[in-house]
Each structure stands twice: as C-alpha cells, then as structure tokens.
Design a protein around this nucleic acid. Structure first.
Lengths: 156, 156
DNA sequence: ATGGAAGTTGAAGTCAGCTTGAGGTCAAGG
DNA sequence: CCTTGACCTCAAGCTGACTTCAACTTCCAT
C-alpha cells in the first residue's frame, strides 16, 4: 500500500476520510500542500494526515477555513511539527471550545425554564433579553454566553 | 409604542433583534406569519416574538430552518401555544443538545491527548479512527460522538 | 394635505465550502 | 503495447441563509 513514504491522493482520501474534491479544494486554499510527480500527480507527505485531522476537528466545532489556515500557518515552517507544536495549536481552540460548551449547556438548561416557561415574550425574560428596558444592564448576571445572545437591544 | 396589540415589522425588528430582511425571509419560508393592513403592511401578533426566540435558539445550535419549521409546525394550530407546548418543543432539541455537548467535551478533552500527542497519524489512533483496520469494530468504546467521527473508513 | 419615515415587492447577489462535469492525461499490471 | 483505473484541470453549479437593490406605496404627525 505504501510504496515508499509519499501518499497518492487516493490513499489520503482513504486514510483521511476527505473526498478528493475537498483535498484539492484545501490545496487551492492553502491548507495543505503536495509535491508532484513528473506527470503532475499529487504526492502527499504523511504529515498531511495530521493536518487533515486538525482540519476535521476544527471544522467539526465550526471554525472557518480562514481561521484554520491561520492556525496552521503558525506551525513551524522548516521542520516537521512536534508534539509540542500541535499541543500549542490545540490550546488555541480550547477557549473557543469552552465557550461553545458553556453556550450549549446554558441553552440546554435554559430551555425548560425559558422556552418552556411563559417568559419567552422577550419583553420580560431576563435570560433572553439581558439588555432590554425591563431588565437594564447590571440588574442581573449575563446568563447567556455571547454565542447565544441576540445581537443588540437597541434603545427603545 | 403599542397602539393596540399588533406589532409593525419595525417593532418586531427592534424586539426580536432580527433584521427585517430575515423576518420577510422567514415569512416566505413559512416559519412565521403576519396579517396585513388594508394597505398591505405586515402586522404581527405578539406570539411571533416567542417563535422568533425559538428560532434564534435553534439557529444558535446549528439547527437548519427546515427542521425549525417542522418543529414549529408541531405546535397547536388553532390556539396560542401553552407553556406545555413550548416545553414539549424544547425537549425535542434536548437530545441534540446533549449530543453536541458530548461531542464538544470529547473533542476538548481529546485535543491534548490526540492532536497534542503523536497519534494523529490517523492510521493508528483509536480516538480518531474508531472503525479502522487497526482497531476494528468492537474492540473499544466509540470514543467520539457521531458528530465528530470521520465519515467512514472504507474497506482497505 | 403633505413630507418623510417606514413599509412593500421581486429579483438578483453574496458567502462558505465544497461538488459535479467535461474532457483529457498518467501509471502500472498483463 | 495496451488497457484500465487513478488522476489531472478548469469552470460551473449547488445549498443554506440571508442581504441588497431599485422602484415604488403607505402611514401618520403636523
């Protein structure tokens, strides 16, 4: 299966789970790279699988490709990334993950008490309406994480 | 501000946080409805705010509009939805929320031990590669929730 | 009665993130 | 050598969720 240590696109498809179209797209977008045979076919280094795993993880939590590329660009240029490099990168998602988890938990736990209750008139509910005139800034805690708050309760 | 008990689109914009374009779009898509003045302008019942809050909550956790519409369609037709109705609806997201939270927690806790470690070659890591030939079906727990698993390790 | 804010429409545009198709080239086993 | 499957490029298409635009019309306070 592995003649030497470069992978064909088909092998990468198989081992990464990404379709070839996505791999080519990612290459165009500068997220992964490949060398070429004399005939122009792609040959991937094994390291690409790790990058692709990172991309999958990031995509799964809703990180956009631009941001993924920025993160990957922060990997060392010349050498193969070390364990420490990937750890550092993973830490950069950690805050976002914490925030998203917090948001989902808040939503889950808030559903019964908010959507479930009668308070969803929006004019009265502190949970859903943190900045509204009924419960203006500072009366209570910011119950919802930013991700779930509505854009802005403009002056009424 | 409220002449009687119907709301103009501007008032709904203000109180829901959705732009008018989104409100009209949601109406075309059958997620909300409005009566009309003799001149053709929209007049919303207050209940629309609750629907919009539900829509916002659902959108925030990644539920698509089709599914949101399906859920809203399950509300009672003739009467104003009761507290119990909304509770029932909220329960329908509960499972999804649990799953998503589980997925994010798994990813967060897996980052250090997987992306951080050297195992991300994908050919060997059980965490990222649950169905692969190295660790075929049934050897270990399904560590990652469906949302984060890669599509399918086809026969190799 | 009138001027300006607020509202209306339908069609087209946008953006991310790919996918699909057409039409051709490369690589390797027999 | 030949076939066949894997691979190539470029361009266009697609889905979801809206936004933007142009060209009006309606509402209501003065």
């Amino acid at each position: 299966m592995d003649s030497h240590d470069l992978l064909t696109i088909g092998e990468v498809v198989e081992r990464s789970g990404f379709p070839h179209s996505a791999l080519r797209f990612y290459e165009r977008e500068g997220l992964v790279s490949a060398s070429r045979t004399s005939g122009g076919q792609r040959r991937y280094e094994r390291g690409v699988l790790r990058r692709l795993a990172f991309i999958r993880a990031a995509r799964a939590v809703g990180v956009g490709l631009d941001e993924v590329r920025d993160a990957l660009d922060r990997l060392p240029a010349g050498r193969t990334p070390t364990k420490a490099d990937w750890t550092r990168l993973s830490r950069s998602w950690r805050g976002r993950l914490d925030e998203q988890i917090e948001a989902l938990v808040a939503l889950r736990d808030g559903l019964d008490s908010c959507i479930g209750c009668g308070c969803l008139s929006l004019a009265r509910c502190r949970l859903w309406n943190p900045g509204d005139r009924v419960a203006v800034q500072g009366d209570g805690a910011q119950l919802l994480p930013p991700a779930l708050r509505r854009p802005a309760a403009r002056e009424v």
